[in-house]
Design a protein around this nucleic acid. Structure first.
Lengths: 343, 343
DNA sequence: CTGAAAGCGCTAACAT
DNA sequence: ATGTTAGCGCTTTCAG
């Protein structure tokens, strides 16, 4: 591998000048810079990241924590993050937090402490107090998508408001008998999103003066299959039948659509269905949803952390932890699975 | 950040001994090792990756190239790779090759040359000659999933055989009028998988003495929506109608299933459908498919590269490039979308 | 089995 | 604007 002295020799300058010319830190005359750059290019020189990191303390690398790699939502956010980071010349090292507690611990106690990264982005991770503390001890910029977590900088979408919006849409269309597919009321309180979405659903009903009916709740696990099963229950059992279904994720909404179709219900004539997320399949299924722009979330997190890094570098730190959570946008997308209730 | 001398001081030994005790390279008495380990643990010491890499030339980090992050197949392979690497203490830095040619170039010319990784795994990337050459110049172990590429170590599934197997299944069930959804014959030859699958399909038909019929080919783009559209064409237009559909991916097969249902065909009574891949939704849709175990592919690639690294380290390099491509397993999974043709 | 010391390849004062 | 030089925090001979 060609090293910096070789470039220096070819350009007829010192290694310090090569470093300055190539990194853009410190002044170098235009003519020397040109000479250095051409020498570097012709030799195929690229700065060694470990040598540079060791000397400068900067790695040009961001650690990204994800809970799942193979689920649409997370991989889409990650995709946004990856492209934004790469655009700005940063590498990304990926930490996939698995169910294995021991392995998860090791990410916080070992992997992240190798001084391999300049900052950390945590994508929709439900962080324990200890984990949050480990992150803070890193003394690195951290951006969490999700939360809000008062001890970290967060980008968060207001899940209560999102669910309220979806439900209000149904109410506006005249629906009263609206079922809920998502977290059961006694759901694990560690995982907040499903609970928030249920709360938003209930708020919208309450605002409209519609009493909640336990028989219209059906728990499911956020997959297509889970939504399918839940909808089968809701639509198949005798007694009160909903005219609309609120599904706490698009995947479950799609499952519900499939179930309705299989039972012979026409959507949206006999049944309206609304989801949440902005899933890529939503368009195909003509699904009405509240889009939360996951790709954009990933990009924003990347930009936020790089901005913080640059500000820190320039000596004007912004984005202190503990600040107000930054709010992420969302939008109701009305497509073909919801319609006015026929009287 | 606590450094190695602190640990050395606490344990009452030299930094060299700390290094040896913690890395396991070179001999250290059991009692010293124990003292060092406890000092390290109590101080929360973790080796600095840049310092260690600079001194040793080893990074404990593998670069992973993927063409898409947000498509099921690739993110599943990646998931397998990530968990296997993490299990063995390796970090993974992710390079998402986008459509942007310039950015793609920069991955090969710059990002990968930063000496940040000990090896590279390329997941289903169609590498150009120049790119292959850049990879070889890195002088690092490289494993490509896909190919085969005679200039690289590859793990490849025999796509021709896979498609043949799926088609033979249909033939065995008595089908003659079998449609093909996938690459059109004049498809971009740069991207091999769709073409291989079409060839396997044709071989199976030829073996069974069934002439290929152009009207039973419908091109599609490997998405659910693409499969849906293609199946609508095949099943909706007047003239000869297939009794079975071979879809070159599970996603297209699922689209075809949905289209069939919408047109009122019963599956498998009126129409058999087979896919390829082993998609997570296959079970839900009762889809007959040829599974290629993407999670396992990712794990195998990780294990292969780590084995190569260890062998190299131990001075017994194996897995030279140019070797025979290692074959990946696949298996016909017969579920509910295929049945014997009714006469 | 352990310690001393010489780098690994770069960056960042400090000079000039 | 550029060069000199002292590290950055480890690993690895080389001695002992």
């Amino acid at each position: 591998m060609v090293s910096i002295d070789e470039v220096a020799r070819h350009a007829g300058v010192s290694t310090a000048t090569v470093s300055r010319a190539l990194s853009g830190r410190g002044h170098v005359s235009d003519s020397t810079r040109a000479r250095v750059e051409s020498a570097a290019k012709s030799l195929g020189y690229v700065v060694s990241s470990s040598a540079s990191s060791l000397a400068s303390g900067r790695t040009r690398n961001i650690g990204v924590l994800v809970p799942f790699l193979d689920r649409w939502f997370f991989s889409t956010v990650l995709s946004g993050t990856a492209s934004a980071l790469m655009r700005r010349g940063y590498d990304i090292t990926l930490y996939n937090l698995t169910a294995d507690r021991e392995q998860r611990r090791s990410v916080f106690e070992t992997f992240l402490r190798r001084q391999r990264v300049d900052g950390v982005i945590a994508i929709s991770i439900e962080l324990g107090d200890e984990e949050t503390e480990r992150l803070r001890e890193l003394d690195l910029p951290v951006i969490a998508i999700g939360g809000p977590n008062p001890r970290l900088s967060t980008l968060t979408v207001d899940d209560v408001a999102v669910a309220r919006l979806a439900t209000e849409h149904l109410v506006t269309l005249g629906h009263h008998d609206i079922a809920h597919i998502g977290a059961s009321p006694e759901f694990d309180i560690d995982f907040h999103i499903p609970t928030h979405r249920r709360q938003g659903f209930e708020q919208a009903l309450a605002d409209a003066g519609i009493p909640a009916r336990p028989s219209l709740y059906e728990p499911a696990d956020f997959t297509i299959e889970g939504g399918f099963r839940a909808a089968k229950q809701l639509l198949g059992r005798p007694g009160e039948r909903p005219t609309a279904i609120f599904a706490a994720s698009d995947e479950m909404a799609i499952g519900a659509l499939l179930a309705a179709r299989e039972l012979g219900y026409r959507v949206p004539e006999d049944l309206s269905v609304v989801g949440i997320d902005g899933h890529e399949l939503g368009e195909f299924f003509r699904l009405t949803t509240v889009d939360q722009f996951p790709l954009g979330q990933g990009e924003r997190a990347a930009d936020a952390i790089l901005d913080e890094l640059e500000a820190k570098d320039a000596g004007t730190p912004n984005g202190l932890p503990g600040e107000e959570p930054r709010r992420l946008p969302f939008e109701l997308i009305v497509r073909g699975t919801t319609a006015r209730l026929d009287h």
